[in-house]
Design a protein around this nucleic acid. Structure first.
Length: 258
DNA sequence: AACCGGATCAACCGCCAGTCC
DNA sequence: CGGACTGGCGGTTGATCCGGT
């Protein structure tokens, strides 16, 4: 029998996302919230699979993402968390506001792994490399941590609003953001939100991405998701909206109030 | 200036767990 | 209870970038 593919393979586009596709997805989610990813491509007019849309949104388009290289503090936190949690990237990412599991996973594989090896530490066991007699002993990720163990993420939050590295905006981003800023419909809906007194729902900070998703998946009604959007727009401001290249929202807000 | 190899990271794939009917 | 469906996760791939020669 086998399960159905996650999407109709016929006519489903793959590969890098274009600015136009990004715009459609952002527009759709800002208007309708994150509800039922399977339906998103159809409703948003995208020839993509829902999974791909979700990935694109969570890993790249979400406005509360920090982008840029991880700071020293964040890196240290990742190492610490990895020693306790193992390759549970989503759990690790949940402790690093504005970072995605994919980003952390990539950073681990490209930077941190090598760094640890250079320091003579086994990146898997977190034991000294020349002391590999009991590899499975401390490598077990489950041995000594619970979800609510007191790991602070303040180190990353402390500098979250300050300095994402300078490479956070590419030419494509600029094109995309320009096109978003020039999109009247999108700007109108956003300015409406920014004009309203937003609800104090913190679901988008920290582990909030998950929380927001859960809210949406449990309550598929659009208004709930819309409230989440308002919350993360708030968080955009908390993080420093320019950090995400969404500076146009501020401009728009100013315009809306005039 | 051209080429090459390594580094980086966005995106895909397959599997799994939770939920619904 | 069991099958179908969906969202989420972790591993992997491949296109692009970048520095060295």
């Amino acid at each position: 029998m086998g399960r159905q593919p996650c999407c109709d393979k016929l006519g489903v586009k793959k590969g890098p996302w274009t600015a136009e596709e990004d715009k459609k997805l952002i527009n759709f989610i800002l208007t309708n919230g994150q509800c039922c990813w399977r339906a998103v491509p159809k409703l948003a007019g995208l020839r993509r699979c829902g999974k791909s849309c979700r990935l694109r949104w969570t890993n790249y388009l979400r406005p509360d993402l920090k982008r840029g290289l991880l700071s020293e503090d964040e890196e240290q936190l990742v190492i610490d968390l990895h020693s306790r949690l193992g390759n549970r990237w989503s759990k690790i990412a949940a402790r690093l506001p504005g970072r995605t599991d994919n980003e952390i996973k990539n950073h681990w594989n490209t930077h941190i792994k090598k760094k640890l090896v250079k320091m003579g530490i086994d990146p898997v066991t977190h034991e000294p490399l020349n002391n590999e007699s009991k590899p499975e002993q401390s490598s077990s990720p489950d041995n000594n941590i619970t979800e609510n163990e007191g790991i602070t993420n303040s180190s990353s939050e402390d500098n979250s609003s300050t300095t994402p590295t300078s490479n956070c905006s590419t030419d494509d981003d600029s094109t995309l953001l320009d096109s978003i800023c020039n999109d009247e419909t999108l700007l109108k809906s956003l300015s409406l939100w920014l004009d309203e007194p937003p609800l104090a729902d913190a679901s988008w900070n920290g582990t909030g991405a998950t929380a927001a998703t859960e809210t949406c998946s449990k309550e598929t009604s659009l208004p709930t998701c819309r409230e989440d959007n308002i919350a993360w727009l708030l968080d955009c401001q908390d993080f420093g909206i320019h950090d995400f290249g969404f500076g146009c929202l501020n401009t728009m807000n100013t315009l809306a109030k005039e």
